[in-house]
């Protein structure tokens, strides 16, 4: 079972990002479960979205304590409680302008970072960073297939469908992964021309 926790603040689109992941894996024919927990359903309050993906029906009805991946929309949300279930194999993808190595003092995890706001703005989706972060997720986790993911994002986006799909592909290219040469620039070379010249 793949267990993912998406941490954001109300209004950032973290819940929608989680739902898009669930839709994508569901369309791939996987069993999924995705739910969110939030305080007051207001902008700015922390929102946790939990996603389980499996080849068997999901039976658990509880929060994810030991996720395979934590997707964090805001570095200020990287609390000890959030990090407590993370191990050396846990991917921690952070929306940040900083290099992943700069988070190394938080523990031995597979850190990755993306300047998602820059990717969002470059692609004309304003402050909506979730599509870019989804693309980065696909790169770091090796799943779901990024082209398929971009198609789903195009399909379900309420507005700016092509721009959001482009932000997925761009996020895939621009993510910086701890210990990998060029911190994501390698990926940018290997894929389409769309990302060339983007600031990371």
């Amino acid at each position: 079972m793949l267990q993912i926790r998406v941490q954001g603040r109300g209004g950032q689109g973290a819940q929608m990002a989680g739902e898009v992941l669930a839709i994508t894996y569901f369309r791939e024919g996987k069993y999924v479960q995705a739910f969110s927990s939030y305080g007051g359903a207001r902008r700015g309050t922390p929102v946790s979205t939990f996603i389980r993906v499996d080849t068997e029906p999901v039976r658990e009805r509880c929060d994810i304590i030991e996720p395979d991946a934590i997707v964090c929309f805001d570095p200020s949300l990287l609390s000890p409680a959030l990090m407590s279930g993370a191990g050396p194999d846990t991917v921690i993808l952070i929306n940040s302008t900083r290099a992943p190595e700069q988070f190394a003092d938080m523990g031995d995890h597979r850190f990755a970072t993306l300047d998602a706001l820059a990717v969002a703005q470059k692609n004309g989706v304003g402050r909506f960073v979730n599509s870019a972060i989804l693309g980065a997720f696909a790169k770091v986790m090796g799943s779901p297939d990024v082209e398929f993911l971009a198609e789903v994002v195009r399909d379900v986006s309420p507005a700016r469908k092509n721009e959001n799909a482009a932000a997925v592909l761009d996020g895939y290219q621009m993510v910086r992964i701890k210990g990998e040469e060029g911190s994501g620039l390698v990926a940018a070379v290997a894929t389409s021309a769309g990302a060339e010249g983007a600031s990371a």
Partner: peptide, 9 residues
């Protein structure tokens, strides 16, 4: 939430 708001097949 665990059921009411959980997306599932």
């Amino acid at each position: 939430f665990y059921i009411s708001h959980a997306l599932e097949p």
